[in-house]
């Protein structure tokens, strides 16, 4: 049973359509990554789900319930979280907890527990104005989960962080996905691969490719052969690209990446034969599968 169901959602700003006919579902307890290039409509979609932006059309339903105020059961982290900087982290957390209808005791207890969890205990009573970017991001996640939401919406939770901060947040997400349904947007594919069960690649405001991550990878990845030349020569690339078993050749600075079709064994043999026939001087030859990144590039390329 789908937890979150989005059907034919659209949003236009004037004549510009940011999101059009977007439909997807996120099952209960799953972690879904919303991928797409900048300007694809990720933020707009999340704003509509969070109830901050009214859709121009379509419907959003959660647990079979559509319309109404679902803000009580969602937690949302904006792309650039900002705070009343004169408050301390602890004050802000219990403030948002009380807004989400926790009672005073509960809000205070939850605040302490969550501050501990996101690693802000030492800074809890300092003013937010003095926090670093990573600390603000972690406080943002803390305010999103303060009221035990059933659905967590995170807009680019790791994009602005340094590698260390990124790892901390990703580890936090891996823990959180045991408790709630998560939908988060990112343009860092590696992060999506690390934590997501499902992926949704959107382009120009609509789904270009979506589904369970493993299945999508299985269905859409293809055997690739990476050939490195000792020196870059255009005619070598052309010679390999012309082969009937090569579906697509991507010229790189070091050589060429060949996407194969048909029987991979036969294709490998054909490529090797060509290399020998043309006396192409190679430094390495690597057989593998295309990555999520290749898949993404293929899906969003016009």
């Amino acid at each position: 049973m789908p937890d979150l169901e989005i059907s034919r959602l659209s949003k236009s700003f004037g004549s510009k359509e940011a999101v059009r006919d977007l439909s997807f579902t996120v099952g209960e307890g799953r972690c879904a990554g919303l991928l797409g290039p900048n300007g694809a409509g990720k933020t707009t979609t999340l704003l509509m789900l969070a109830g901050l932006l009214a859709p121009s059309g379509g419907s959003i339903s959660f647990n079979g319930k559509s319309g109404g105020d679902i803000r009580e059961i969602i937690g949302y982290l904006p792309q650039y979280p900002a705070y009343p900087n004169w408050m301390s982290g602890r004050e802000f957390l219990s403030f948002t907890g009380r807004l989400a209808r926790l009672d005073r005791r509960d809000a205070a207890d939850r605040s302490s527990a969550i501050l501990e969890r996101v690693g802000l205990t030492d800074a809890a009573d300092r003013r937010i104005g003095g926090y670093s970017g990573g600390m603000k991001q972690r406080l943002g996640i803390a305010q999103a989960i303060i009221h035990r939401p059933k659905l967590l919406l995170l807009d680019e939770p790791v994009s602005a962080l340094d590698p260390l901060g990124r790892r901390e947040v990703l580890e936090l997400l891996l823990e959180l996905k045991k408790e709630t349904t998560i939908l988060f947007s990112t343009h860092v594919l590696h992060d999506a691969e690390a934590v997501c069960d499902d992926i949704l690649i959107i382009r120009d405001g609509r789904i270009a490719l979506g589904g369970e991550l493993r299945q999508v990878m299985r269905e859409h990845t293809e055997p690739v052969l990476t050939v490195r030349f000792t020196e870059p020569r255009a005619e070598w690339t052309e010679a390999l690209a012309e082969l009937p078993c090569v579906r697509h050749a991507d010229s790189r600075s070091f050589g060429v990446v060949l996407a194969l079709k048909g029987n991979p064994e036969a294709a490998k043999t054909a490529v090797l034969k060509k290399i020998v026939d043309r006396a192409i001087s190679i430094s390495s030859l690597e057989f593998g599968q295309s990555t999520l990144e290749d898949l993404f590039v293929k899906a969003v390329r016009p």
């Binding site: 969070a50 109830g51 009580e72 900002a82 705070y83 009343p84 948002t96 807004l99 989400a100 209808r101």
Partner: peptide
């Protein structure tokens, strides 16, 4: 002021 800094979003996203 709150709207421009972005802090207002943190309030509007709660059931207020």
């Amino acid at each position: 002021g709150e709207r421009q800094s972005g802090a207002a979003v943190m309030i509007h996203v709660k059931p207020v």
